[in-house]
Design a protein around this nucleic acid. Sequence first.
DNA 1: GCCAACGTTGGC
DNA 2: GCCAACGTTGGC
Length: 139
Amino acid sequence: MQYWLLKSEPNVWSIEQQKNEGLKGVVWDGVRNYQAKNNLGKMKKGDLCFFYHSNIGKEIVGIVQVIKEAFVDPTDRKKKFLAVRVKFKKLFKKPVSLADIKKNNNLKKLQLIKQSRLSVMPVDTKSWKIILKMGSITI
DNA sequence: GCCAACGTTGGC
DNA sequence: GCCAACGTTGGC
């Protein structure tokens, strides 16, 4: 089991919309960055991902789960990039803001801080657990 | 709205 | 293959 963080602007794709799609989930497409693509390619069915709202909110708001491993992004005409299918899993009781993450010395290594432009990134188990606690949820 | 940090493109 | 110019993302 591997953990990830997915980023989206809530006015494009919010956790609420994700929730509304229910069990069938949504295709996570539109990624046009090689580093993000490589990460998508490593995802396994069942992996869990934090769902981060960029720009508006700037906080981790929930968790989604990978239900279909990487395939060619249907929106990519050149068929170079990948997409996965994810479904809504859980909402944070208390969203964990970027400011809170920055304040926590144990989360210094999160790529979210260093590489703010990357939209798909791995999260190590330790950080995952810390953030779950901060959001006062269990999985 | 500004700007830093990246990515990408295209001329050479 | 290098690098300048340009475009985009996202925090502030």
